[in-house]
Design a protein around this nucleic acid. Structure first.
Lengths: 235, 235
DNA sequence: AGGAATTTGTGCGTATGTATC
DNA sequence: AGATACATACGCACAAATTCC
């Protein structure tokens, strides 16, 4: 079950396993997990490896660990349960709208020079059309590392990409930096997406980072400024 | 020097030590630290212990670690200190820039219809040219209520408007909401501000609120997307 | 182009300290 | 006081990525 060579590191496989087991209700909020030594033995890993997995989940706010006492399951979403759409910042000018996405293209490519300092040699490039309440409002181009999962297909991706990152790639987006300016619609644009004039197309560059401050993805979004806006709530 | 029993765990002592050394300039941003094995030896600890210390600093965003390459010092994060410019989101494309402002016009006017639900009958309208390191990059139009101070003149305003609000008007900005899109440069534009073409002008609408959730000001900013961008750091 | 050397990442096992029960 | 459980620390072996010759 737990194999090192196939895909994810063992300690991440364990985080995922425990995440699923907690989600499935095998451990409820408030429960104490078995002691490290015991859990490590049943999982067939060294204690140190298990500890690394548990630390991950503690950092994520799923577990609380108390020396001398034990490891406890925390109630879901104590300020943690971030919506998958938390980082989606586009809004129809008339307000609201339910975000969806349609894949235009998905390929594994050689990492472009601009990203080579932060991504490994190969990365995935995902191109999507974004919609708000069925209105096409933006084109999106996303680059993320191919290293951990070298053989992804378009079908493996769900609509909620950040959820996919967490479940399948073992990391989650903790922060991002957006740069909003103006741009020209890319040449791979589709018929559905047609800003009235080139002059009303805005452009967002995003760098997303994981909780470890590593770069998780680069993305560029072109949006039709006639129909929607980039919204930012500052506190 | 590094003692376990006295106070902090050794790995934390090391994090602190390295933090001080980086702050002191012994290691500059971009520098590579000595390899783990070497550093551990000079510090007289096991590699695992050192690694834990380095992981701490990586998590804090002070270091970046790259497998096969080394451990690097990152530039000091600017996310820490809050300033009057905390809500100023424009940045030169080439990076950074010191924000200043030049008043173009300041008048007391009848409140425009669009703001009448939130501002009283009269308000001030301030028009400014914004600069980053002496480069004109944006026009700004700000509306705020005239009720509390009915007789302001342009000379009463400082460059740092938010500071002025707090000192003279008795409130401070606690939150804001920005909507970024694309727009046309207003007719009161000045010679200094000349985006190459209309197509590279972006537009930010802002609603700022006080700590009591009352609307403090409305503003519109037109910025030259060729020279600068709207930057948003999300956590 | 390719291979060796370097450097961090992962994983194992163990011993000891310290907080809790 | 004793048992239990997590925290810290040490050391080693190998994998994976990068760098350099």
């Amino acid at each position: 079950m737990l194999s090192a060579s196939v895909s994810l590191p063992v300690y991440l496989q364990i985080s995922e396993l425990l995440t699923r087991e907690i989600a499935a209700g095998l451990y409820a909020a408030g429960d104490r997990l078995p002691p490290e030594a015991e859990l490590a033995k049943t999982l067939g890993v060294a204690v140190g490896t298990l500890r690394k997995a548990l630390s991950e989940l503690e950092l994520r706010g799923m577990l609380a660990r108390r020396q001398g006492s034990g490891t406890y399951v925390l109630p879901a979403g104590m300020g943690q349960s971030k919506s998958v759409y938390e980082f989606f910042k586009l809004e129809l000018i008339r307000g609201g709208g339910l975000p969806t996405a349609r894949v235009i293209d998905f390929q594994k490519i050689a990492t472009p020079a601009a990203f080579q300092t932060d991504l490994s040699k190969h990365c995935y490039r995902l191109r999507r059309l974004r919609l708000l309440s069925d209105t096409p409002i933006a084109l999106e181009e996303i680059y993320f590392d191919a290293q951990s999962h070298p053989h992804l297909k378009a079908a493996d991706l769900g609509e909620a990409l950040y959820w996919f990152y967490q479940e399948r790639l073992g990391f989650w987006i903790a922060s991002a930096e957006d740069r909003v300016g103006v741009g020209v619609v890319p040449d791979w644009s589709v018929q559905d997406f047609a800003p009235a004039v080139a002059s009303v197309c805005a452009r967002v560059e995003r760098v997303s980072r994981t909780s470890k401050n590593k770069i998780a993805e680069y993305s560029i979004t072109w949006f039709d400024a006639k129909r929607c806006r980039y919204v930012n709530r500052l506190k």
